[in-house]
């Protein structure tokens, strides 16, 4: 067994409870008021052999099972994806100011999605979706590799360079995406709105794409956690500890880009989750990535559903989810920068 720090188990238990609560509250919210006990029964009746638990209106069941539940599960999937890729990237780059949004993965994915939308206009749904997902992934990988190559100085990767390169790549890719939307898309407002991030209108088949990739990706990153730990000692030491540096680094970046990119065609760009969540988790479970990544995933899943609840309940109109995480996460980022003593 792996050694857990003292706070680790209570933290994981707390995260799990928070996640379940978020699922309950998330399915409670909506224009049609359904009493919580009925919701609980509907949810439990989904378990095998418990089909008879709910005998209320069939419409309620449809609302919960076909509308609210896929939204909530998608929220969990996106939270898992963003938090685990944020955790892995922070470890790999030895810096806690990194996340998939900041170093340009999200902007690349968004550009890929926009181009994918333009190219696949008129295609059948399945092939169009596959194309968009693959294209998002390729461009998100391209953006992070570009930022990495620009930032690297010999064998050193100064973190200020990486952040600046990430900002530059993000700005460039976002601008290209905007120009492309402006020139080639019939209804620009709709597309820009869906890029702002949100879980609305999520369908089960979309969950069936995002959830497995997120969970498998997070698991793969956890298994690579030993390599990521070794990278915390620098690439030199990692090599001496038997890590195939370039191969391992590429795998970590590619998986992080993949799980981030797969969320973008369905949920838009959701920033800062990957920055904040690993931070909070690290305080309790320590920096060992083999524990930190699953812990971040657990916390991130609940956190994203919570943000979605906020986005739907602060005002009558739904505020895009990406704005909520941007408000919370942007503040958190500022706090981190301000509380930093000196440069590492």
């Amino acid at each position: 067994m792996i050694e857990l720090r003292k706070g680790a188990l209570p933290f994981m238990a707390g995260s799990l409870i928070a996640l379940l609560l978020a699922v309950l509250v998330g399915t409670l919210l909506g224009p049609v008021r359904i009493p919580p006990p009925s919701i609980l029964r509907i949810l439990l009746s989904l378990l095998p052999g418990a089909g008879g638990l709910f005998d209320g209106p069939e419409g309620w069941r449809t609302i919960i099972v076909q509308i609210r539940l896929p939204m909530v599960i998608m929220g969990i999937a996106v939270g898992i994806a963003l938090s685990s890729s944020g955790s892995a990237l922070q470890g790999l780059f030895r810096n806690d100011l990194v996340d998939p949004f900041i170093i340009g993965i999200s902007a690349g994915g968004a550009l890929g999605w926009v181009i994918g939308n333009i190219v696949t206009d008129g295609w059948a749904y399945a092939s169009a979706t596959a194309f968009k997902v693959v294209f998002s992934f390729l461009l998100s990988l391209g953006s992070v590799v570009l930022a990495y190559m620009i930032a690297r100085r010999g064998s050193k990767l100064p973190i200020s360079n990486l952040l600046l390169a990430g900002i530059a790549v993000s700005a460039l890719f976002t601008s290209i995406a905007q120009v492309a939307i402006y020139l080639f898309v019939d209804n620009p407002a709709e597309m820009i709105f869906s890029l702002m991030g949100g879980l609305g209108n999520t369908r089960w088949h979309e969950v069936a794409i995002v959830l497995p990739i997120s969970v498998l990706g997070a698991a793969a990153l956890s298994v690579l956690g030993r390599d990521i730990n070794a990278f915390a000692a620098g690439e030199g030491v990692a090599a001496h500890l038997g890590v195939e540096v370039e191969r391992s680094k590429f795998m970590i970046i590619a998986i992080s880009a993949l799980i981030t990119a797969v969320t973008i065609p369905f949920c838009g760009v959701i920033g800062f989750v990957g920055l904040m969540i690993p931070h909070i988790a690290r305080r309790f479970v320590g920096p060992d990535q083999r524990i930190l990544i699953p812990s971040s995933a657990l916390l991130g899943g609940g956190f994203l559903v919570l943000c979605d609840i906020l986005s739907r309940s602060i005002s009558v109109a739904v505020i895009p989810l990406g704005m909520i995480t941007g408000l919370i996460g942007g503040g958190f980022f500022l706090y981190l920068l301000a509380s930093r003593r000196g440069v590492r």
Binding site: E3, R94, G286, P287
Partner: peptide, 30 residues
């Protein structure tokens, strides 16, 4: 190779707050 030769480079430092035991455990990775 890493089971036969180990190396301590100059200024070996670690990002994040790994404990002493966690760092020594890294020697077991190979």
């Amino acid at each position: 190779l890493s089971r036969i030769v180990s190396t301590l480079p100059q200024d070996a430092s670690y990002g994040f707050d790994y404990t002493v035991e966690e760092i020594v455990s890294m020697g077991r990775y190979p």
